[in-house]
């Protein structure tokens, strides 16, 4: 089931605090040159949802596959 989830970044809400980047266990995320979060290595994502849990600005989340319907 979990591989049906998709990591989504709502970049315009990102304030660049770097919390998601610091606590991502598989280093999927980086801070880009604008000092905002960027998904750099999606293949490493284990879809644990820790970024969504700790993003203070609700800018990153796991989207359920059934949301598409």
């Amino acid at each position: 089931m979990s591989d049906q989830k998709q990591l989504v970044l709502k970049r315009e809400w990102c304030k660049g605090c770097g919390i998601c980047v610091a606590f991502c266990p598989t280093k999927v995320l980086i801070m880009d040159t604008d000092y905002k979060c960027t998904i750099a290595n999606i293949d490493a994502c284990i879809k644990c949802g820790l970024c969504e849990l700790r993003c203070p600005d609700y800018a990153i989340y796991l989207k359920e596959a059934q949301d598409e319907q």
Partner: peptide
């Protein structure tokens, strides 16, 4: 987005 500063954990 809300008014809180970057890195403020009130949003969490």
């Amino acid at each position: 987005p809300h008014i809180w500063c970057p890195g403020c954990s009130h949003g969490i």
